Amino acid sequence: MAETCDILISGGGVAGLTAAAAFGAAGFRVICVDPAPPVTDRHAEGADLRTTAILQPGRALMDEAGLWDHLAPFATPLQVMRIVDAGGPDGTARVIRDFDAADISDQPFGWNLPNWLLRREMVARLRALDTVDFRPGTATRRLVTRTTEALVGLSDGGQVRARLVLAADGRNSPMREAAGIATRTRRYGQTALVFAVTHPIAHMNVSTEVHRSGGPFTLVPLPDQDGHPSSAVVWMEDGHKARALMALDVPDFEAAMSDRSAGLLGPLRLASPRQAWPIIARTAERMTAQRLALMAEAAHVIPPIGAQGLNMSLADLQCLLDLARAAPERLGDPEMLDSYGRRRMMDVQLRVAGVDLLNRSSMLPAQPLRDLRARGIAALHDISPIRRGLMGLGLGLK
């Protein structure tokens, strides 16, 4: 006999766990499943060493979900976004522009946290919610939908009847595929190298993005490590070059990354293992099906630029949560899902296109085009209304 709940969440990554906490805190009965138990220790095999910047609107949602009190002690504020062009012939920093959150807000742009730590604290929050049943080690297998409910088959042989199925199960979403929703994929031939570093110069809560060619090299503030200033690095490069970099021994890799950072924080020292992630852009052709809503990477995948990834996912969640609380009796019905698709699809398409443009500009190999990019960075910063408008757009402020 099938179990019943209001919402079955397929996927227990950061987005899925946040959704479980948010809907559970709002009083909905939630079952959240994921095929793999979350890795919640930085040093454990399989730990996700990437970091995520939670922007201002995302923090408000984390507060609603009862998550922010768990996360705040570990969060590093991001007060300034520094954009650097080092695309000249000698690779030095020739254009540096600071986008300061104080121009538009009395809060930082956002707060940076390691992904493994996000999972740890979110799982702790779910344990305190009697409305949420989190089942790591269980996957979704089958989806059958009817007018009033969805029936989901699980890998443990069980079945769940839910008014809404929320697919937060990644770029290869099994629930999206079960619903027959097609995707459009763009491949860049890039790989993102992800790791942590220490450096002699303090980051001062400044996130620094260095553009040369191949993709941006981004240093995002972390708490000090062993008494030294520390940052998370996302280094996007051509796939062939990225593989060669991954094969370097530590001293040679440290020399390469210090050079690629334009020396802005002094010599960088590797402070974690290196991980490599392929870079693609992917969007679902629609964000809903009968009794099913897609969110996060099941709906949209973008390159890691401008802290847009998780924050687009949180915007999906906020929209769904607002609709569900406004009319709980319509949870998962056609009217609710049509509203969700209309509200989110245009924003998703605009942000995917914007990040695609930024990524392509960061990859430019030709010197004249890199020179044009440097002038563009300066112009966008130096015209105050444009600068403030871009910062507000990036935050998703209304």
Rank of each mutant, 00 (worst) to 15 (best):
S384T: 14
R50C: 08
Q308Y: 01
I305H: 05
M363Q: 13
A75Q: 03
A44R: 01
R59K: 04
M236P: 15
H70V: 00
I83S: 00
T51S: 13
S258Q: 07
A315V: 11
D338K: 12
E121N: 07
P229M: 05
D98M: 03
L61Y: 02
T145D: 07
R94W: 04
L294F: 12
G180M: 04
T4F: 10
G170K: 01
S230E: 01
R344Q: 13
R127P: 00
R212E: 01
R120G: 05
L118K: 03
G110C: 06
P221W: 06
V33G: 01
P385V: 15
E329P: 15
R97H: 07
T140H: 03
I7V: 14
V144C: 11
Q367C: 13
Q56E: 13
L113I: 09
M62S: 01
A315Q: 12
A60N: 05
M391Q: 12
Q107I: 08
G87T: 04
L151F: 03
F28P: 03
M346Q: 15
I386L: 15
A202T: 06
L294P: 06
A192H: 09
A101R: 05
G158T: 03
A281I: 10
I83N: 00
A315E: 07
G394H: 12
D238Q: 08
A192F: 12
A293F: 13
R119V: 03
E177R: 13
D85G: 09
A192Q: 08
D382G: 14
E285T: 15
G110Y: 04
A65V: 01
R373G: 13
N172Y: 11
T76A: 14
V14S: 04
S105C: 10
A284I: 08
L154V: 07
Q56G: 06
A47Q: 00
L166R: 02
S361T: 14
A21C: 04
L350T: 14
A232H: 10
F23P: 07
S105H: 11
I9Y: 03
D249I: 05
A378Q: 09
L364D: 14
A21H: 01
A139C: 09
R163M: 03
P77N: 07
D106R: 07
L55D: 03
R161N: 07
V301I: 12
P365I: 04
